[in-house]
Design a protein around this nucleic acid. Structure first.
Length: 280
DNA sequence: AGTATCCTGGAA
DNA sequence: TTCCAGGATACT
């Protein structure tokens, strides 16, 4: 589900297709998904789309913004004349929009943006652009992979924390962008047992882990994200990363490197996969 | 630091 | 019929 590579893929799609469109009306089919004054966006033109960690911000030309977190099953799907119709609905979603899980419909000039969310965990907030950074989620975000998170900063964070390394990687307030799938794959690639206490990792291991995180996230963006559950990009298309999971979801299957049976455990309440031979 | 919570679909 | 998936938060 959506981690940095998935959300960045959506951002790029929206940046390409949504910019320049004007909001003509908003259908609020499930009110709890949206906060703020709907009227603020009517007649406003999309200027650009920013991403912070796993959060998105659509900026309009009237000083208002739409802050979005799609959590696990949210989808932002654009339909409009700018793109060929047949590419707009994925086979897996397979439904004509809007459907039962379409909670918000943003009517634009000559286009539509749908917000679908099966599990209704996501949120969208209309607020003044200047106030976006005051939202707790954005305000508390830690340094982001590929941006502020340098090796030395990453090393400081790892050494300062005594919890297990995997749940640490998932704490968006410590470092932002990493989610469960890429955390599993990065730890496997670095040969580190996810249960190891963070502060006990050696400098070499920290360097290896930092490089592995960047490597798996970069790969994720390259292949358009991971569509294990309901993730789709801004055109409703699926990504490919689920086809190249190195360890995530491979419980009981042979390790791709050494053939040892992959084990599964729960760490910090999250499914965690481990090759007992490769990860020490 | 660990766990319940939001919610639904799909798998066991 | 029950359980499980997990992003972030609110709890204990």
């Amino acid at each position: 589900m959506p981690e940095l590579p998935e959300v960045e893929t959506i951002r790029m799609g929206l940046q390409k297709y949504l910019v320049g469109h004007t909001v003509t009306d908003i259908d609020v089919r499930l009110p709890k998904m949206l906060t703020g004054e709907v009227q603020s966006l009517i007649g406003a033109k999309v200027q650009g789309i920013r991403r912070f960690g796993k959060g998105l911000v659509i900026d309009f030309d009237n000083g208002y913004s739409l802050a979005i977190h799609i959590k696990m099953t949210g989808q932002l799907v654009y339909k409009g004349t700018k793109v060929p119709k047949e590419t707009q609905v994925s086979e897996k979603v397979g439904k004509i929009l809007p459907h039962n899980h379409t909670h918000l419909i943003f009517h634009l000039n000559n286009a539509t943006l749908y917000y679908n969310d099966i599990r209704q965990f996501g949120w969208l907030k209309i607020l003044k652009t200047a106030d976006v950074k005051e939202l707790p989620f954005f305000k508390d975000l830690g340094p982001e992979v590929f941006k502020e998170l340098t090796l030395s900063l990453f090393s400081d964070i790892v050494k300062r924390n005594k919890i297990a390394i995997k749940p640490l990687l998932l704490e968006q307030k410590k470092l932002s962008g990493v989610g469960n799938i890429y955390a599993n794959d990065a730890l496997f690639k670095a040969g580190i047992d996810p249960r190891r206490k963070a502060h006990a990792l050696t400098d070499t291991e920290i360097e290896k882990l930092f490089a592995s995180i960047e490597e798996v996230m970069k790969k994720g963006i390259e292949v358009g994200g991971s569509s294990e559950w309901s993730y789709v990009n801004a055109l409703g298309e699926e990504g490919e990363y689920q086809k190249i999971f190195q360890i995530y979801g491979r419980e009981g299957k042979p390790c791709l490197v050494c053939g040892t049976v992959i084990e599964k455990l729960v760490l910090g309440g999250r499914g965690t996969y481990l090759c007992p031979t490769c990860q020490k």
